[in-house]
Nucleic acid binder design. Structure first.
Lengths: 117, 117
DNA sequence: CGTCATGTTTCCTAAACACTACACACTAGC
DNA sequence: GCTAGTGTGTAGTGTTTAGGAAACATGACG
């Protein structure tokens, strides 16, 4: 699970090259955690942070929150809520799509967005 | 969150009417928890149990595990795993379907099952 | 009456989670 | 050389999760 740390570290360093406001300390301050904690996160010395902190971090680093949450082994609670409201329906759908290729899922997304229901 | 307890209690009582093997104590024993604990669960005196225990309970009471998990405020970890493997794709899909009517989602499920990708 | 079996109550806890506090060592720039 | 800023190491904290143990009260029935 050090995927998370590496990803964050890399993303931050990359931003830091161009802008020194992306030091570990400053990022930590902006997302509201202690520097020592962020340091440990980046080096995988502790588990990925809470959902809230992960989302703040993703925003700060201009990364997709859902992706970062996934790397942290989590699923956004608003997605979970959608599923919990109609568990049978969504459980069925998601299991059905487990092995579907990306393009098939994408086609469905578009189909739905063009809202023909 | 006493929805969970009430649901379990009602389901168990209903089974118990026809079959006295569905006493609280016996069910507790079969799903591997202490009677006192199940008692508290049914009366909402404690939070819903872990995913594993919830699934065992659902099976025992012949209820849909996904539904019972939902009542307990959880989402099955195998569903979460599917999402975590392709977070952007599934996050998009699920958010798109948040307000879609049941029949629209069902149509998609069927479409996918008839696997035309 | 005694003894099962039922559900309930009280008290306790081990482990995991999500962090903070603070001192330390290094370096970069003026 | 100083100081402002950088990242790191160690230790400890409060909270939540997920229950277990054991005693208690009630009723059924043989």
């Amino acid at each position: 699970m050090t995927q998370f740390g590496t990803f964050v570290h890399t993303a931050r360093r990359s931003l830091q090259e161009a802008d020194r406001r992306y030091s570990l300390r400053q990022v930590a301050k902006r997302i509201g955690v202690e520097p020592g904690y962020l340091s440990k996160i980046e080096r995988g010395q502790v588990a990925p942070p809470s959902e809230a902190a992960t989302v703040r971090l993703a925003r700060e680093l201009d990364e997709d929150p859902d992706v970062l949450l996934a790397l942290g082994g989590k699923v956004s609670s608003d997605l979970q809520e959608v599923i919990r409201k109609r568990p049978q329906l969504f459980a069925q759908l998601i299991r059905e799509l487990r092995d579907a290729p990306d393009h098939a899922v994408l086609r469905i997304v578009r189909e739905v967005r063009d809202g023909d229901w």
